[in-house]
Design a protein around this nucleic acid. Structure first.
Ligand SMILES: [Mn+2]
Ligand SMILES: [Mn+2]
Ligand SMILES: [Mn+2]
Ligand SMILES: [Mn+2]
Lengths: 220, 220
DNA sequence: AACTATTTTTAGGCTTGTCTAAAAATAGTC
DNA sequence: GACTATTTTTAGACAAGCCTAAAAATAGTT
């Protein structure tokens, strides 16, 4: 139905409009995220607008139409289901799943995705804690807190990450921090806001504020 | 490394050179199988020859080089592993797996294929009984007999199919014939060579010669 | 060997998605 | 309001793959 490239543009526009709430998505922002040139983006925006997938006003940025939103959210759904498959079944690390999912998300077969969803037992979040949109396009908005904003003695569970880079996720691997780990904040340093955190009621570790800024938690 | 299209051409040349033993593969044969035009094939053959993936002599057809063979066999490996995944894990019918595997075979990640192979427990054949090439590019040649060539009272196991069309595979589904079924040939009609066959020592069914011509069996 | 039918290649063109360089529009500053 | 910096669009080009129509080569027949 839609090409590899069209799906990628729509998904990118979706992610950007989520990030920077309600504003129009700009040409340069899309070019940055897709690692392409602004001129190429302008070309594609015209084509997507012709197909009624986006609302595009020259020089004013773009927004997804209902139709474009459905394609975007469908692509996100496919991406995240594949990530779950790679992580749960094939035992990929959470820092490894994204790259391959970028390819798998473009396989065209609704039947396949239904079967995959069933096989994975209808997961609600991906290996990074991001919600998986339903078949109908609905998506649960998360109400998570940043670890850095938690108070002393708070007891929380790691439920997501704000940063998705391989380097950051590997850093968390080294610290044995992953989704589902229960933390208790033992101490917060006043000077640099680094934290001493107790994991699973066992080890105490030091979490830099740079790391704590990118970990999402919910109440334990 | 190699594009979707390049992999498809090389795989097609491989299949054709398997079929019609040792002869050069012709432009029209490739065009037929790929559902494209002969002129397009000629264009691509020049490009593949430039990349040393095939030996191409104008008007004389083509052959895979060592390098091209490796790409082709690798693509076949990916295709068949994905078919096993779809059949075993996602519970696709054996008539449904091919279409989706045609897409999945082009996902580029050796790491993924290794993990998938492990997850599937190193299968040696795909859902149609075709052998899965090893990581090193070796492939076991099959020594199977056509059901139609079996003698009266022979006891055999269904181990493959010669015809891969959806219609044929569905026909076998209706007859409850699938890989692994044990058959005993009860009677062969002299006039039309249709067979009366006993399945799993239970039901007796009639197998037309048209069907028997396309079932591959090994000794029970 | 000549003629014919078939196969294959060439020539020229189209679409998708990309690029660079230049022009136009917008935003920011005095 | 004019000037400047930044963003965005246009113009023109290119590669990958595909097409049709015409030309060239090959194969088959007498
Ligand atoms: Mn991802
Ligand atoms: Mn994710
Ligand atoms: Mn197949
Ligand atoms: Mn198969």
């Amino acid at each position: 139905m839609y090409s590899f490239t069209e799906e990628n543009y729509l998904k990118t526009i979706y992610h950007l409009s989520q990030q920077k709430h309600l504003e129009n998505v700009t040409t340069n922002a899309i070019a940055d995220l897709l690692q392409t040139k602004a001129a190429s983006v302008t070309d594609m925006l015209k084509k997507l607008a012709d197909k009624k997938l986006i609302l595009y006003v020259k020089y004013q940025g773009v927004n997804l139409t209902e139709k474009g939103f459905k394609v975007a959210i469908g692509t996100v759904r496919k991406h995240r289901l594949w990530e779950v498959f790679l992580f749960d079944k094939l035992k990929f690390g959470w820092e490894e799943v994204h790259e391959v999912a970028e390819q798998l998300e473009h396989i065209q077969s609704d039947y396949l995705i239904d079967k995959l969803d069933t096989f994975l037992n209808y997961p609600s979040v991906d290996p990074h804690g991001d919600p998986i949109p339903g078949k109908d396009g609905t998506i649960k908005s998360q109400t998570l807190t940043l670890l850095i904003d938690c108070k002393k003695n708070a007891q929380v569970v790691i439920s997501g990450v704000k940063e998705h880079s391989v380097a950051f996720l590997q850093r968390l691997n080294e610290m044995e921090l992953c989704l589902g780990k229960k933390l208790k904040i033992h101490e917060i340093n006043e000077f640099d806001r680094c934290m001493i955190v107790m994991i699973d009621k066992e080890a105490k570790i030091l979490v830099s504020n740079e790391v704590a800024k990118n970990i999402l938690v919910s109440e334990a």
